[in-house]
């Protein structure tokens, strides 16, 4: 088969699978971002139990490969009667893993705001809400948004590991096509290019964001 015919055969399937990749990324990100914030706040909490639990969660989840977490959720939970679809297991697994990572990012952002600034704002007469909005939040965002942007890009690539639990995304589809066409080099190079293509607009957005935030400082 010539190249044009091959591409015509592959692209529709690969593009459909790429949608799965993007959906997985988006859902996992939402989970990671919200859970991560909760974890960060727990970590900074005065309540010892909360702080310690968050610490343990973060250390344990970050100490193992994401794949292992995915296996535990997809295969391991079956002993407890929980059988998830692979896609759901992937989203949850990636989300839990990401939450542990983002918790540290949030923590750095919050701690980056020097307490003196809050006091200065208060002395000018700003109310608590104003202080938060005008002083703390803009600076915290500047610290937190770029790493979060980079996290999303990394997450997009990490969804590829979901193929190991046969979740419907790009790498899995590539594997299936390989077993059909026996052209791994071409297929995986193509898929690699597709990942680059998906990540590119994200990377541009992150850099744009970094520049705009840097102006503020």
């Amino acid at each position: 088969m010539g190249w044009p015919a091959l591409l015509a055969a592959w692209m529709p399937e690969l593009l459909a699978a790429a949608r799965g990749t993007i959906e997985m990324t988006a859902l996992a990100f939402v989970l990671a971002a919200t859970l991560g914030l909760a974890l960060a706040l727990a970590r900074l909490s005065r309540i010892g139990l909360l702080s310690r639990s968050a610490f343990v969660y973060i250390e344990v989840v970050r100490g193992m490969p994401a794949v292992t977490l995915l296996f535990l959720i997809y295969f391991g939970l079956t002993s407890f009667g929980i059988a998830l679809y692979a896609f759901a297991a992937a989203v949850i697994g990636l989300g839990l893993n990401g939450a542990a990572y983002l918790a540290e990012v949030y923590r750095a952002g919050i701690e980056a705001i020097h307490p003196g600034q809050r006091e200065a704002a208060q002395m000018i007469g700003m109310r608590h809400g104003q202080v938060l909005r005008e002083v703390v939040l803009p600076q915290a965002l500047a610290v937190v948004l770029p790493p979060m942007g980079n996290y999303v890009i990394a997450l997009l690539k990490d969804t590829s590991i979901a193929s190991l639990i046969s979740a419907p995304e790009l790498m899995l589809r590539a594997r299936d096509l390989t077993s059909e066409y026996f052209m791994p080099m071409q297929l995986y190079l193509l898929v690699g290019a597709m990942y680059l293509g998906m990540a590119y607009p994200l990377a541009r957005a992150v850099r744009f964001m970094e520049l705009r935030l840097a102006r503020g400082r």
């Binding site: 690539k157 990490d158 590829s160 590991i161 193929s163 790498m171 590539a174 594997r175 390989t178 026996f182 052209m183 791994p184 080099m185 995986y188 190079l189 898929v191 690699g192 990942y195 680059l196 990540a199 590119y200 990377a203």
Partner: peptide, 23 residues
């Protein structure tokens, strides 16, 4: 740097293991 950081490592692994085998 751009290429090898922009593509998932799993894909790179497959290119090296399966792809090179094809060649």
């Amino acid at each position: 740097v751009q290429v090898f950081r922009g593509v998932p490592v799993l894909t790179q692994l497959f290119v090296i293991y399966f792809g090179l085998a094809e060649l």
